[in-house]
Write a protein that binds this DNA or RNA. Structure first.
Lengths: 154, 154
DNA sequence: TTCAATTAGTGGCATATGCCACTTTCTCCG
DNA sequence: CGGAGAAAGTGGCATATGCCACTAATTGAA
């Protein structure tokens, strides 16, 4: 058990993941700063872009994000005119989302900045390593973990 | 370039990392819920625990976290009596942090819950894979990435 | 058709994180 | 010694995320 290391230093998968997320997040944030978008907003806008007028729930699911959190995160983007929402034709409970022309333009602008950061990162860790890491992270994200909430008896 | 996949689906290392972080975070949060601690607070308390009355800057650096963010995150823990701070003897600018007895007790309590989640996770992905993933994440976190801020000319 | 259950979002509240502008202490050099 | 500049935190402001309690709209079954 290699007690040679710090006594039980953070072997916590979650803590390690968050730490890396803070680090990488700042890097991408810096890169995107000139566009005025945070890396999180860029990610969200991109997700909307590659979807076809997705419903909020659809986005939330794809991003493994709480629906209400998505709603909150969307607000500044709507306020700034990058995104707009509209009710679904067939189900008025459903709210769909799309980019405005300004949003499209901003995305194009941000993509250039993003690609610089992305390239820089992949130069450092290697494109293959990066791809493997992303695959591993996707696998983790899609694990559908659940604490044994007592009753599977249901 | 395998246009077979979603048209340029998120290859963004940052987006992928955040997505996984949200997913895993919720899992650990659920597991720790009975203790009343969030996984982030657990991580912070643990970090304090394994350090020797660390200065705030020391913790921030170890966790790759903004100093002010650390200050903010510490507040609820201080308010709830798990953590206390005190000025460094030799440098009054430095504020050191330590767990209170209640904080120690809470950590012990949370550790039991944490280990369940940790085990569950490692059962699913395999201990080795998990260790490799953590290593990769630590490597990423410690990359010390920086956008080419124009002037190395300085 | 009518009402209970389900589904999709919203709003409020709390924590997580960052950046920036300050304030307080130290350090160090002239 | 005294003031310029660095170092460590604090506070304010803004976004990121979650949970919970609700509301509105739909669906399903009696």
């Amino acid at each position: 058990m290699t007690e040679a290391r710090k006594p039980g230093f953070s072997d916590c998968n979650n803590a390690t993941l968050r730490r890396a997320a803070r680090s990488l997040g700042r890097f991408y944030d810096d890169a995107l700063a000139p566009s005025g978008l945070k890396s999180t907003q860029f990610g969200l806008i991109f997700q909307i872009h590659i979807s076809d007028e997705p419903a909020m729930g659809t986005i939330a699911e794809a991003m493994i994000m709480d629906l209400s959190a998505l709603g909150h995160t969307l607000k500044p983007l709507i306020r700034d005119g990058y995104v707009e929402t509209f009710a679904d034709k067939d189900d008025r409970r459903v709210k769909r989302v799309r980019l405005t022309p300004q949003g499209q333009a901003k995305l194009d602008e941000a993509l250039k900045l993003w690609s610089v950061a992305q390239r820089e990162f992949e130069d450092k860790v290697g494109a293959e390593q990066a791809a493997k890491l992303r695959a591993a992270l996707d696998a983790v994200a899609d694990l559908n973990l659940e604490m044994p909430t007592a009753a599977p008896s249901n």
